[in-house]
């Protein structure tokens, strides 16, 4: 990439980060943070149902799947995984909803290519009338989800869960007792 190209990419990344941070700062987060409660309040605010559908015993399942229908948004999530992982999954899919990704109609697709690799994106769009998500939208959703987690952790007085290895979760989520989180 040329220098000009690199600078443009850098500026675009900064703009994206700023947009996402503004989006997240405007959200109302339940305290202490709970992904289920957060999504319930999101649905109430939007006046449109968000159904959470747990899926178990499917080892080849993608972690999360968001299906937007005429009636509701349905998030399928792997339920037989750690609570922290579930939270990641739910927040990622909720972030797509928050960012209003389904309102746009880009031609390149991400999920469509995975689910229907032999069908041209134009056909998918023609049949559905809408679209599936692009790579930039996936990145934006991931960023918004991360920022929600970080803000929730700050609000609740904890270290950001994204930085925490799985086996440290219990100690970090217990109430502060003056000793601070265990290290090492």
């Amino acid at each position: 990439m040329s220098t000009g190209g690199r600078l443009r990419a850098l500026r675009e990344r900064r703009r994206l980060k700023l947009r996402c941070r503004q989006t997240v700062d405007a959200l109302e987060l339940p305290r202490p943070f709970d992904a289920f409660a957060f999504i319930a309040s999101l649905a109430r605010t939007r006046g449109r149902p968000i159904e959470l559908i747990p899926v178990t015993d499917r080892p080849h399942t993608p972690c999360g799947l968001l299906v937007t229908t005429d009636r509701a948004d349905c998030i399928l999530y792997a339920a037989d995984t750690t609570p922290l992982h579930q939270q990641h999954i739910l927040l990622h899919e909720a972030a797509h909803i928050i960012c209003g990704h389904y309102d746009t109609a880009p031609s390149a697709t991400s999920a469509a290519h995975v689910l229907m690799p032999n069908l041209p994106p134009a056909l998918v769009q023609r049949v559905l009338g809408r679209t599936v998500y692009t790579e930039p939208q996936e990145r934006e959703a991931e960023l918004v989800a991360s920022l929600i987690r970080c803000r929730a952790a700050r609000d609740d007085g904890l270290r950001p869960p994204a930085l925490v290895p799985r086996n440290r979760v219990e100690s970090l989520l217990s109430p502060p007792d003056g000793r601070g989180p265990r290290r090492g």
Partner: peptide, 14 residues
């Protein structure tokens, strides 16, 4: 997908 009234699909998978 169309019959279900699906408008869009997002997938988080590796």
């Amino acid at each position: 997908l169309r019959d279900a009234g699906v408008r869009s699909v997002a997938l988080r998978a590796v």
